[in-house]
């Protein structure tokens, strides 16, 4: 079913919206959560929670053109939050790798104690992505949005491992400089 029709079901408060969403995007959402949670049960909980949150958010939101981006944001946030709470997950696996890589982007002098303004940070990340080429942006998002491994990115685009690693390294450097320019330092 097309995204627009699924969104119409949500707007009409038709509960079949959830079943249609699950049919179309359930596997992808679960996979995203499972990549960093490494726990099929917890990933399924994130998936189900995503539907409930979407039910509460549509309306007022109407993500007609690309529902997956809207749902994926919710799933990612739930999974990251769960990892943050679960110390055992925080210290191992892909989540550990990803957060360590993100740490490289945080400007020196940025206060770890101070909670960043989430909306402002999203906008800054977007203004950074806007300056990148489509190829760079895709690789960056496959890694940090979809949580792909480097070999998976290589297979997707036919790039060598060193090319992907170098691209990601340069983009993390670029993001750090961008954050500095945007004032993310004390």
């Amino acid at each position: 079913m097309e995204d627009e029709k699924i969104v119409e079901l949500f707007l009409a408060r038709d509960e079949s919206a959830i079943a249609r969403t699950a049919e179309k995007y359930g596997a992808a959402l679960r996979k995203t959560a499972e990549r960093i949670l490494r726990d099929a049960g917890a990933a399924e909980e994130c998936e189900n929670e995503t539907y409930l949150e979407a039910w509460g958010l549509i309306p007022p939101h109407e993500p007609r053109s690309y529902l997956f981006a809207f749902l994926g944001r919710i799933t990612r946030h739930l999974a990251i939050d769960e990892c943050r709470k679960r110390e055992s997950l925080k210290r191992q696996g892909l989540f550990c790798e990803l957060t360590r890589e993100m740490e490289e982007c945080i400007p020196a002098g940025s206060s770890a104690e101070e909670e960043a303004d989430a909306e402002a940070l999203k906008s800054t990340v977007n203004s950074f992505l806007e300056k990148c080429s489509e190829e760079q942006r895709n690789v960056f998002l496959r890694r940090y949005w979809f949580f792909d491994t480097v070999p998976e990115i290589c297979a997707r685009y036919g790039f060598s491992k060193s090319k992907v690693k170098t691209m990601l390294f340069r983009m993390r450097e670029g993001l750090r400089r961008h954050l500095e320019r945007e004032g993310y330092i004390i």
Partner: peptide, 30 residues
């Protein structure tokens, strides 16, 4: 700012960027 806050913020990437990354070609490799 904490590492996971930045990772979470990437989630707010524009829809068109996510779409492009989602639809990006799967190459048969070189």
């Amino acid at each position: 700012m904490k590492d996971y806050e930045l990772l979470d913020a990437v989630g707010g990437a524009k829809e068109e960027y996510i779409k492009s990354a989602a639809e990006g070609k799967k190459s048969s490799g070189r």
